[in-house]
Write a protein that binds this DNA or RNA. Structure first.
Lengths: 231, 231
DNA sequence: TATTGTGAACATCTTCACAGCT
DNA sequence: AGCTGTGAAGATGTTCACAATA
């Protein structure tokens, strides 16, 4: 995807944008522990990246640190939130209210975030009109996706439907002006250029890890656990 | 992470490994539609990458196509499965049997994959000994993680516990010789070099998308939907 | 003719290493 | 002394473009 970005002078790498939420979250944790400032080195250790990478990433947006001192955490968190447009709450449409959709609706991480599930849809007549999520939402019919997200100005959708229904769901959301999709279905969505998609595919992730889990790796690893005395 | 890889001559980029499962899945879909062969171009369109990338990725492992003809899908799928060590089933330990853990245990994508949930753990006494998952598993105490995964030879763990418990869970699994972790907790796990971790963090993904959802982007996008007549 | 596999060019991303500031 | 911000170097990843070939 080529993202439209008319104001920034230099093009900011997309990998950098993907790391910022982790920086923000980790900094917020430190704040929660009563720590007020941190060096790029300490932060890097916690996150598992290099200090140079953190400094370089931040340098795309400005100068947030003090030489000899490090970063003021509260300030840096607020700056990252500003960069990521997290100073407002975002309404999200959740499509699919099976086990996965229900787990998403109840997920503490969402409730503690800037994202509010503002509408829930499902195509199962059994589920429609049932209460959904913590704040008295009810499950709406699939048929109403486009109209409802448009009326409510929802720009973000979560797709938690079976693979076979995912493409059509994406199209209904996009027709309602949604421009960001979090896709839990194991399908590559075909979307217009201006729509941003992130896929969550646990099976693909496991499959990319088993590449490394061949016999020689597992044998070598027995060593690391001190289970093999020799050779 | 630097992964141990003693046999391969050339180092195969990790991004390539991450793409292979998507190739395999897409090829399997085509097979399911009764399509027997495909060119890198057709496959690329479906997956949303370039044809050159697919050809380059595959070239790390050998020559699987026929000039003028394309790829035999059944053959290519089986080769990718072989490369990814998917010719065997893999036992997986699931830790955390709240809403998320239960959704994972029931997820169709897992049941249709090479991964079998072979043990389920939770620290809630209410949940222990309850039936878990489709095949008569029962929820075991958190305290038994290390012993059980070691006894059963489980090398893959899924962490679906609250953030505060994730690091300790990882340590218990690793003590039981688990070397691959799929982590749903919004925490950066500290693990030894030989352990492979993949994080699933929906909030971070949403937060990296809102970067692009500023006023100017949304306005520009109204255009793309034909909602704004002019400037 | 249609398409692969790949050297070479290009683009992107990461790290080094250090001047400069506190 | 300790740390940032960054130019330059290096590493990694992607695409081009075409010879080889079914």
């Amino acid at each position: 995807m080529t993202l439209y970005n008319p104001t920034e002078e230099a093009e900011i790498p997309e990998v950098v944008i993907r790391r910022l939420p982790i920086y923000a979250r980790t900094l917020a944790e430190l704040l929660g522990h009563g720590i007020g400032s941190v060096s790029s080195n300490e932060l890097a250790d916690r996150i598992g990246v290099t200090a140079a990478q953190i400094r370089r990433d931040l340098s795309y947006f400005g100068k947030f640190g003090k030489q000899g001192k490090g970063y003021d955490i509260a300030y840096l968190v607020s700056e990252i939130h500003r960069i990521l447009n997290l100073t407002q709450d975002w309404d999200v449409a959740l499509v699919g209210f099976g086990h996965l959709g229900q787990a998403i609706a109840r997920y503490r991480g969402f409730r503690e975030s800037n994202f509010r599930i503002a509408a829930v849809f499902d195509d199962d007549p059994e589920k429609i009109a049932r209460p959904a999520g913590p704040e008295g939402l009810e499950v709406l019919s699939h048929a109403r996706i486009t109209d409802v997200v448009r009326e409510r100005g929802i720009r973000i959708g979560i797709i938690a439907v079976p693979a076979a229904a995912a493409q059509q769901t994406a199209e209904l959301l996009i027709a309602g002006r949604v421009v960001a999709l979090l896709n839990y279905a194991p399908v590559v969505l075909q979307v217009p250029d201006h729509v941003c998609v992130r896929d969550i595919d646990p099976v693909a992730m496991l499959q990319s890890m088993t590449y490394y889990l061949d016999k020689s790796y597992l044998r070598a690893h027995a060593h690391a656990n001190g289970l093999v005395e020799d050779k």
